[in-house]
């Protein structure tokens, strides 16, 4: 790797009482790549992702974004710094419209008196922006931008959540189990969407248990085991069964993979 990682973590430690969830964990995400994070249940994947996305504060270690040291106190701060997380639950409000959901927390106000003093929202501008972003990602099978999110299919909802993450000039997008709740066709759409987002130059961290999906879209795979990074492998060089073997401790990873 000649490039510098856009997001880098070194020696992260997180303890919950006697349980050590993160034990000197390292993490590297390079510009423009899709990095999959895999690991058995309890390996500390979630703690790692939470530390990066600001949901937990690590006890030790440091995280840098574009070379600058960062210390998030909340997910909101991480988002403001450009790290967007699409949670497994999607964090969408079902009764609100697609537009309202995309702009939650960063609404646009009307110019002039109405916006400045009455704080009136600029619905037209927000709708146009939302439509453009969904169009960009090929999600315009949605006809009505003002329909409630609960009237969308699972894949469409995922699409709205990803579009929201990608729409606001974010530097890194973290996707937590994006295909776990979806059927075959919808998973395919979401995988295409992930690749589409990557082609726009936004690096993606993909957490998934679905090996075929991971091997299909990831550029590199970060294998997490017992609280730290065991190795990083390229999907072209190893099989799925190799990855599962490393992840579960059935096989030792080769030395060159652990060094990366």
């Amino acid at each position: 790797m000649t490039q510098e990682p856009i997001l880098k973590a070194r020696g992260l430690v997180k303890r919950y009482g006697k349980v050590t969830a993160l034990d000197q964990a390292d993490f590297d995400l390079y510009p423009g790549e899709i990095l999959a994070v895999i690991g058995d249940n309890g390996a500390g994947k979630s703690s790692l992702i939470k530390a990066i996305s600001g949901a937990v504060i690590p006890d030790e270690g440091e995280i840098t974004l574009e070379g600058k040291r960062i210390q998030f106190q909340s997910p909101l701060e991480a988002r403001d710094a450009g790290i967007e997380t699409v949670y497994q639950t999607l964090a969408l409000s079902p009764a609100l419209s697609i537009t309202d959901n995309m702009f939650v927390g960063r609404e646009l106000r009307k110019p002039g008196f109405m916006g400045k003093y009455l704080r009136m929202l600029d619905h037209k501008a927000m709708e146009a922006f939302a439509r453009e972003k969904l169009n960009d990602l090929g999600l315009m099978t949605i006809q009505n931008i003002n329909q409630a999110v609960e009237t969308l299919s699972g894949g469409q909802r995922q699409g709205v959540a990803v579009a929201r993450a990608a729409a606001f000039g974010s530097k890194v997008i973290i996707l937590d189990e994006p295909t776990a709740a979806l059927g075959v066709k919808e998973s395919r759409k979401v995988l295409e969407l992930i690749q589409d987002v990557r082609s726009r130059g936004i690096p993606i961290v993909l957490i998934s248990h679905n090996m075929p999906h991971v091997f299909e879209v990831a550029d590199r795979i970060h294998v997490h085991r017992l609280g730290s990074r065991l190795c990083t492998i390229r999907p072209g060089e190893y099989t799925m069964s190799d990855a599962v073997a490393f992840m579960t401790g059935a096989a030792e990873p080769p030395a060159e993979a652990t060094a990366a």
């Binding site: 997910p75 909101l76 988002r79 997380t85 949670y87 639950t89 999607l90 964090a91 969408l92 409000s93 079902p94 009764a95 609100l96 309202d100 959901n101 939650v104 927390g105 960063r106 609404e107 106000r109 009455l118 704080r119 009136m120 929202l121």
Partner: peptide, 23 residues
């Protein structure tokens, strides 16, 4: 017509989601 109002709806709809979405 204001962001505050939409947040009130979002909280009533799903408080946890609203929190994660940055409210």
């Amino acid at each position: 017509k204001t962001a505050w109002g939409r947040h009130v709806y979002a909280i009533g709809d799903d408080k946890e989601a609203a929190e994660l979405a940055g409210i």
